[in-house]
Design a protein around this nucleic acid. Structure first.
Lengths: 143, 143
DNA sequence: TTGCGTGCAAACTTTTTGCATAAAG
DNA sequence: CTTTATGCAAAAAGTTTGCACGCAA
């Protein structure tokens, strides 16, 4: 897994900042914002500027290492490491508490094939998100 | 259909601007940005301000008449009228030309039920988008 | 007459860019 | 030494807000 990333980074210069960003992305179970990454790195006494995080993220997206995730009503972008298909998954987002709960596997793969056959569109990716009320918030509402 | 919208607007004051915004949303086959709406209304010699469009859109979203759609790499929000379930659909977005091509029906509804049963999450909505290369762009590439 | 809807300008938030400098190869 | 990566500050882009005024009810 890690080697795959290293492969994609081949040709680029070594950069502690980039390593830090990748590390944070790898260790977070849900998508993070540029601001999140920036704050986390600063807390570890490593200096970094916001624009550097933006530039690193842009590069990682272009290299296919990271991808953008959008949220229900937030105006800022979130990002996550692209996992291999085995662990690739989606989220249920609670409209009350905004928590993002991962859905096991990806239920969209088969759909994708069917639609590709039907339409001739060469599908390379997808986005799938569910919105609703999580169990916690539903419980609170009843009280 | 139209009556449904009128019903949701009950209690609000009449507003030409709101009517114009709804009209544009109804007549566009793909999601539009606030800026798009603003420009279109201005072209018809009707004066409106950007913030008014934002406020109208916000209201329409809260009333469940319109919903937000997110895009691949655009930082601005797009909106579309919520159609009844019969015509509710999703988009394939071409990563080359950015065109949004509607997918017939909504293939996610059954998935939603299965996941709701499995997880106890009370699902109220979803987002589903496919990315890839449209036939046009694929043809150009081969040349 | 009451108060919702609107325009305008200013504020705010997120993201991008220019430029000089530091660091990698 | 050459070129990429970075920091800082300013600019841009998108969205929100405050306030005064007009218009629907």
């Amino acid at each position: 897994m890690k080697d795959k990333i290293a492969e994609k980074l081949k040709g680029l210069r070594a950069s502690k900042n980039r390593d830090d960003v990748i590390c944070i992305l790898q260790n977070s179970s849900t998508p993070v914002s540029v601001e999140d990454i920036y704050e986390k790195i600063k807390k570890t006494n490593n200096k970094i500027s916001l624009s550097t995080v933006y530039r690193i993220i842009e590069k990682l997206v272009n290299l296919g290492i990271v991808h953008k995730v959008t949220t229900l009503d937030d105006n800022k972008a979130l990002y996550e490491i692209i996992k291999d298909s085995h662990t690739h998954h989606h989220y249920m987002i609670c409209v009350k508490c905004k928590k993002m709960i991962p859905i096991d596997d990806c239920p969209v793969k088969e759909l994708e094939k069917i639609i590709a056959d039907k339409t001739g569109f060469n599908i390379t990716g997808h986005k799938f998100e569910l919105y609703g009320e999580c169990e916690n918030c539903a419980r609170k509402d009843k009280k």
